[in-house]
Design a protein around this nucleic acid. Sequence first.
DNA 1: AACACCGCCTGAGCGC
DNA 2: TGCGCTCAGGCGGTGT
Length: 289
Amino acid sequence: MPELPEVESIRRTLLPHLVGTRLTRVTLRRPDICESWTLRKGLFVSTPTTPSTLLQGGVIADILRHGKQLALVARDGRALCITLGMSGHLGWQVTPPDRPHVHCLWKTRDGYLVFEDPRRFGGLWTYPSLDALRQHRWAALGLDALSAKPGTLAHQLAGSARPVKAALLDQSVLAGIGNIYADEALHRARIAPTRPCGSLASTEVRTLAAAIRWVIRHSIAHGGSTLRDYRNADGGKGNYQSRHAVYGRGGQPCHTCGQHLHAAQIAQRTTVWCTSCQPNTPLPIAPSP
DNA sequence: AACACCGCCTGAGCGC
DNA sequence: TGCGCTCAGGCGGTGT
């Protein structure tokens, strides 16, 4: 379940293999996981996926990330957006892959870039340029969660009755947060996930924005969270899962106060929080993380 | 308009 | 051991 820190770890481990490298041959085994888009008279139109739209022959200039999505950008401008969904993985290997669920692979001089995704919640989207990708596929995404700003977040949450947990999972509010880091950030900010967005005081929004940045920064520093099968592009595991305060710990004692952590469904997601550290009413003094 | 909810999809983990 | 059930969840589409 790659969220921002896992996707960023993949990006960083891919950079040394790919930047300045030519993709000499593309093999798309499952065309149904790919969409190709182009601009015609200012409108986005779907076009057939070809080796060329999948960057064949291009030299990688950079790998970018917005939220949980990656973009490979070729020197000639072509851009390829990759989303991993639930079970997707993007890896680098020297030998050709022989695993099931490899949907696309790119050969380079020294090895293979491999996209695999058993559940197929992820996919590939191709564009003639990074600008086009940003205008189309990334247009509805909020600010990247790594640079969560209190002012912007306050504006996004103002007046909304939905639980703050639901807003954090909404990629148009902040891009990159999934179930793990929503729960971790709320615990760090000492805010109950059930709180209506509109009920948060401005000090709490500030605390929440700081907690989001902190949790994500620290997870990246530990290579992300490996729960079942997440690996970075070189096959390395993350170890932030051992530092989770609440995610996956329902019924276990809170590391902060010792009370048993509460688990419930919020926004159709299993949500874990400490009803003592994260009360349903604003804390008198919002602690700074 | 804003939000709730469904369904896609496979593998891990569990009880029997 | 092996079978069938449940659960995990990002996200686009549809319903309220």
